[in-house]
Design a protein around this nucleic acid. Structure first.
Length: 826
RNA sequence: GCGAACGUGGCGGAACUGGUAUACGCGCAGGACUUAGGAUCCUGUCCCGCAAGGGGUCCGGGUUCGACUCCCGGCGUUCGCACCA
C-alpha cells in the first residue's frame, strides 16, 4: 500500500465558499427543475414525509420551528437519496384562537394579518431550503380547504358521531370563549393563563369516547403504529382506561345511587358514600335538619372556581346530607355525604367510600370521624391493627371482614363480587375512560362556520353538501364579547338564511369549529389539493397514505394526534379510507433551549433564525441545529458553536477544489482510509435512519479529518461524502456536486452503500487488562485477535502488562475477540 | 402527590447487547503564516504527579473478571398528569 501525500496548495480566492450565492442559485434551480415535485400519480416508491404544519400566529418562525422542520427535511432528503419518491408538503394552520388573538392584539383583521404572516413564514421556509412541494401548499383558512372541514363535520353528523348538548363548559373570561378540557391546564387557560370559569352553553360534540377502546388498542398494534414511547404513554394516560364495576346502593325509601369503583372487592369496607355536590339526587335525600348545611356547602363550592376544586387544597371538606343508603354487600345502612373531591364529570358522580383502602376516603374519614374498616390484609401488619393510612396495595393482601370474599386475593374477589352483584341485579362490571367527548364549538370569529341551520320547524338542519362551503363572512367587529355568542351572530345578512328543507327564514349556527378539527385531517388533503370536488382523491390517498413518517412536537401528543386518529378512524368506518391509523411512524422532536434556559418572550432570549442565516448561511445553520444534540432530545443553542459547522463546510469546499484539481491520492489508497470511508457510510446511514443526526455529523467530521490528514481527495470518496452531506446542507452539496462535474441535481443520485468487508479493519488494537484494569494495548491481525492464547503471547511482551501480572499465576483469561483480553491474577 | 426521562471535562454532547470513559464540536493555551487577524494551519487540553503510577461518569452500597451502562437506597434536574374513585 502506498501512501502518497501531496502538499495542499492554498485555495485561491475564487474558490472560497459564499453561502448566499450558492443558496440563491440552487433555490432558483430547484424551482426551475421542479426538483421537489414528485409524480403524485405514478410514483415508483412513494414516501410521505410529513411535518406538523405551523400556525402563523406570530410574525415569523423561531429557531425551535426551524429545528423541527430541518430535522424532518433531513429525513425526507435522506429517503429521497435512497431512491424514494418523497412527498414533503407544507401548509399553514392559520385558523384558530392563536391567530385570532394575535390579530386582536395587533388590531388588524385576521383576514389581512394572517396572510401577511404566512408570506413571511413562506419566505423563511424557502430560505432554509426545505424540500417542500409548493404545488401542494395549503392553508386551513382557504375556503377550498374548509369546505371539506365542514364536509367532514357533516359526515360525522350523518354517522351519529356529532351531537349537540347543553354542557357545563370551561369558559375563559379573557379569551371569552369555551375551552376544551385539554386546553385547561391546572384550571387555567392554556394560552392566557386566566382562571377558567364554568358556564353552560349549547355545544357541538364529537363522540370520540365511542372509539376509546380502539384508539387504545391500536397503540399496541405494531402493524398500524410505530410511535415514540413518550407519545403512546401520554395517549394511554389521556384515554385513561379503568376497569371496575358500577354498584347500586339502595336508598331506604325507593331508588338507588349508582357508584363507579375500580375496587369492587372492597365493598364490605364501604362505610359511607360521597356524592358530588351537584349530584341530582342530593335534593331528594337531604334531611330537613341538614338542609341548611348542605345548601351552604353547595353554595360555597360553586362560588369557588374550578381551580381550587380540581387542583385541590389538601384539606378535605364535605357535609353530611342526613340520608342513608344500604351497602349491597353488608346490607347495612351507611351515611351519605357530599364533598367536592368527588367530581360530577367522572364515573357516576358518586362513590362508595372505602377509607381503609383509598387515600382520599381515608383522609375524609379522619377529618369527619367516620369508621375505617380493614378488608384487605397487609402482610406487614396484624389483621386487627388499626390502619394509620389507607392500604392500597392490591397485589399482596387477602380479603377479610368481607363475608363470602374472605381469604380471596384482590383479583379473585373483584371477579367474585362483581358476578355476585350482577346476579343480584345491583351491579355490573364496566370499563370507564377518562376521555371526554370532543367539544368542537367555539364562540369565535376566526374559524370555519359549523354548517348547520336552525329552523323553527325542522330543528338543526345540516347545510346540504352542495352548498358548501359556508363562507366565513368578512366582518370588522370580529372581537368576541362576553355574551358567549359568536361575533357572527351580529351580522343579520349572514345570520338569517332559508331553511334547506322548507325555505322558511332560519338562522345559521354562529359557532365556528375548533382549530383541532382543521388540523385533524390536513395530511389527507395535501396530496389532493388540486381537486375541488373531493376532500381527498381515492387513488392519490391509496398511493400516499398512511403517512410514512410524521415528525412534530410532543406538546401535541394528546390533542392533535388523538383527534387526527379519531377523524381517520371515523372516515375509515364510513368507507372513505382503507386505513384506520393515519401516521405509521411518529417521532417527537426535542426542544431547543438557549444557553441552558428555556426560550421565552418574557426572558427575551428567543432566537430568530434570520440573522443567523444571513451571517452564516442556511446550510451552516441547518447543520448546526442538527449537531446540537440528538434530534429527539433537543439541544442547547449557543452562539459560539455555529462556527464549527461552518468551518466544516469550508474545509469540504476546499477538499472538493483539490479533488477537481487533480488525481488525488495518485496511487493506491491506504486500506485504513478506505475502511474509515466505508465505516463512515455505514455509521451515517444508520444514524440518520435513527434520527441521530448529531452523531452522523460527527462521523462525517471524523472522515474529513482523516482525509485531510492523509491528503486524500479521491473523487469517489469526495462524491459520497458530498452526498452524505446533502440532507443537512443541500445547497452546499448541490454546488459541490456540480463542481465535481455533474449536471443534474445531487438528489437524482443515490445514497452510497458500504462494503461490509471494507468496514472491517485488517488489524485491530486490543486492550489488555489485568484484573479489569487497562494495562496496555497490542495491535494484532484479526486472526490473532480472536485467539486468547495468541493475544496473551503478544500481551506478555508488554512491560507494563508484565509488571501488573508481577509473575503471579494467571487464573483466568477473558477474551472479547478483537477487543479486549482480561487477565485475572491473584 | 403520582408517572416518565435524565444526571459524563470549562461548555454542547459521544460511548454498540456490560468490555479502551470523554468521539465530534465549541472554548481555552502555545506556536506558524501575517502590516494585521475575530481568517487559516499546527500542537496541547479530565484531575493529581517530573515520572512510574494513582484517582475519576451526582452520592452511598451491591452484582461481575470487568459497571457511565445492570440492581438497591439517597440527592438533584426536567417534562407530563393532577382529588379520575
Amino acid at each position: 500500500m502506498t501512501d502518497i501525500t501531496k502538499p495542499v496548495p492554498a485555495a485561491s480566492t475564487d474558490e472560497i465558499y459564499h453561502p448566499d450565492a450558492v443558496e440563491a442559485k440552487w433555490q432558483a434551480r430547484w424551482a426551475d427543475w421542479r426538483t421537489n415535485e414528485p409524480d403524485l400519480d405514478r410514483p415508483a416508491k412513494p414516501f410521505y414525509n410529513l411535518m406538523m404544519f405551523p400556525y402563523p400566529s406570530a410574525e415569523g418562525l423561531h429557531v425551535g420551528n426551524m429545528f423541527a422542520f430541518t430535522g424532518s427535511d433531513v429525513f425526507g432528503r435522506f429517503k429521497r437519496l435512497q431512491g424514494y419518491d418523497v412527498f414533503e408538503p407544507i401548509g399553514f394552520d392559520a385558523f384558530g384562537i392563536h391567530s385570532e388573538n394575535y390579530a386582536i392584539k395587533m388590531g388588524v383583521n385576521p383576514s389581512e394579518l394572517i396572510p401577511r404572516n404566512i408570506d413571511n413564514f413562506r419566505r423563511q421556509l424557502r430560505r432554509v431550503g426545505g424540500m417542500f412541494d409548493w404545488r401542494h401548499e395549503l392553508s386551513t383558512t382557504d375556503p377550498g380547504y374548509y369546505k371539506w372541514t365542514q364536509w367532514i363535520f357533516l359526515q360525522l353528523l350523518k354517522a351519529g358521531k356529532a351531537y349537540k348538548k347543553a354542557a357545563a363548559v370551561n369558559w375563559c373570561p379573557k379569551d371569552k370563549t369555551v375551552l376544551a378540557n385539554e386546553q385547561v391546564i391546572n384550571g387555567r387557560c392554556e394560552r392566557c393563563e386566566s382562571l377558567v370559569e364554568q358556564r353552560t352553553l349549547e355545544q357541538w360534540f364529537f363522540r370520540i369516547t365511542d372509539h376509546a377502546d380502539r384508539l387504545l388498542a391500536n397503540l399496541d398494534d405494531p402493524s398500524k403504529m410505530d410511535w415514540s414511547d413518550t407519545t403512546t404513554v401520554a395517549q394511554r394516560n389521556w384515554l385513561g382506561r379503568s376497569e371496575g364495576a358500577e354498584l347500586d346502593f339502595g336508598l331506604d325509601g325507593s331508588g338507588s345511587i349508582r357508584v363507579f369503583t375500580t375496587r369492587p372487592d372492597t365493598v364490605y369496607g364501604a362505610t359511607f358514600m360521597v356524592l358530588a355536590p351537584e349530584h341530582p339526587l342530593v335534593d331528594e335525600l337531604v334531611s330537613a335538619g341538614q338542609r341548611a348545611a348542605v345548601d351552604a356547602y353547595r353554595q360555597a363550592v360553586s362560588a369557588r372556581d374550578l381551580v381550587a376544586r380540581k387542583v385541590g387544597e389538601k384539606e378535605k371538606t364535605g357535609v353530611f346530607t342526613g340520608g342513608f343508603a344500604r351497602n349491597p354487600a353488608t346490607n347495612k345502612p351507611i351515611p351519605i355525604w357530599i364533598a367536592d373531591y368527588v367530581l360530577m364529570e367522572y364515573g357516576t358522580g358518586a362513590i362508595m367510600a372505602v377509607p381503609g383502602h383509598d387515600e382520599r376516603d381515608f383522609e375524609f374519614a379522619r377529618q369527619f370521624g367516620l369508621p375505617i374498616v380493614r378488608v384487605v390484609t397487609d402482610p406487614n401488619a396484624a389483621a386487627d391493627a388499626p390502619l394509620d393510612a389507607a392500604y392500597t396495595d392490591n397485589e399482596l393482601g387477602r380479603l377479610i371482614n368481607s363475608g363470602v370474599l374472605d381469604g380471596m386475593t384482590v383479583t379473585e374477589a373483584k371477579r367474585a363480587i362483581t358476578r355476585h352483584l350482577e346476579q343480584q341485579g345491583s351491579g355490573k362490571g364496566v370499563v370507564r375512560y377518562r376521555l371526554h367527548d370532543w367539544c368542537i364549538s367555539r364562540q369565535r370569529y376566526w374559524g370555519p362556520p359549523i354548517p348547520i341551520i336552525y329552523c323553527d320547524e325542522h330543528g338543526a338542519v345540516p347545510v346540504p353538501e352542495d352548498d358548501l362551503p359556508v363562507m366565513l363572512p368578512q366582518i370588522d367587529d370580529f372581537t368576541p364579547d362576553d355574551t358567549g355568542i359568536s361575533p357572527l351572530a351580529r351580522h343579520e345578512e349572514w345570520y338569517y338564511v332559508p331553511c334547506p328543507v322548507c325555505g322558511k327564514r332560519s338562522r345559521r349556527e354562529t359557532d365556528v369549529s375548533d382549530t383541532f378539527l382543521d388540523s385533524a385531517w390536513y395530511y389527507l388533503r395535501y396530496p389532493s389539493t388540486e381537486f375541488d370536488d373531493r376532500a381527498f382523491d381515492p387513488a392519490r390517498t391509496r398511493t400516499w397514505l398512511p403517512v410514512h413518517t410524521y415528525i412534530g412536537g410532543n406538546e401535541h401528543a394528546v390533542l392533535h394526534l388523538l383527534y387526527s386518529r379519531f377523524i381517520t378512524m371515523v372516515l375509515h368506518d364510513l368507507g372513505h379510507l382503507q386505513f384506520e391509523e393515519p401516521f405509521r411512524k411518529f417521532r417527537a422532536h426535542g426542544l431547543i433551549v438557549k444557553d441552558g434556559a428555556k426560550m421565552s418572550k418574557s426572558r427575551g432570549n428567543v432566537v430568530v433564525p434570520d440573522q443567523y442565516i444571513s451571517r452564516w448561511g442556511a446550510d451552516t445553520f441547518r447543520m448546526y441545529l442538527m449537531s446540537l444534540g440528538p434530534f429527539q432530545k433537543g439541544g442547547d443553542f449557543r452562539d459560539e458553536g455555529i462556527s464549527g459547522p461552518r468551518r466544516f463546510l469550508d474545509k469540504v469546499w476546499g477538499m472538493v477544489s483539490e479533488s477537481v484539481r487533480g488525481d488525488m491520492c495518485g496511487g493506491e489508497i491506504k486500506h485504513e482510509v478506505l475502511s474509515k470511508w466505508h465505516r463512515t457510510i455505514q455509521k451515517v446511514t444508520g444514524d440518520i435512519e435513527d434520527l441521530e443526526y448529531n452523531t452522523a455529523i460527527a462521523a462525517m467530521m471524523e472522515l474529513v479529518n482523516k482525509l485531510r490528514e492523509e491528503h486524500c481527495y479521491e473523487r469517489q470518496i469526495m462524491e459520497t461524502l458530498v452526498v452524505m452531506i446533502a440532507p443537512f446542507a443541500p445547497h452546499f452539496a448541490e454546488e459541490c456536486w456540480e463542481r465535481l462535474g455533474h449536471t443534474t441535481s445531487i438528489f437524482e443520485s443515490r445514497w452510497p452503500s458500504w462494503d461490509e468487508s471494507m468496514v472491517i479493519e485488517d488489524t485491530v488494537e486490543l486492550v489488555i487488562q489485568v484484573n479489569g484494569k487497562m494495562r496496555g494495548r497490542v495491535t494484532v491481525t484479526r486472526t490473532v485477535g480472536a485467539s486468547a492464547v495468541l493475544v496473551k503471547e503478544v500481551a506478555l511482551e508488554d512491560p507494563s502488562v508484565l509488571r501488573a501480572v508481577g509473575g503471579k499465576e494467571i487464573q483466568k483469561e477473558i477474551l472479547v475477540p478483537n477487543r479486549l483480553l482480561n487477565l485475572v491474577v491473584r
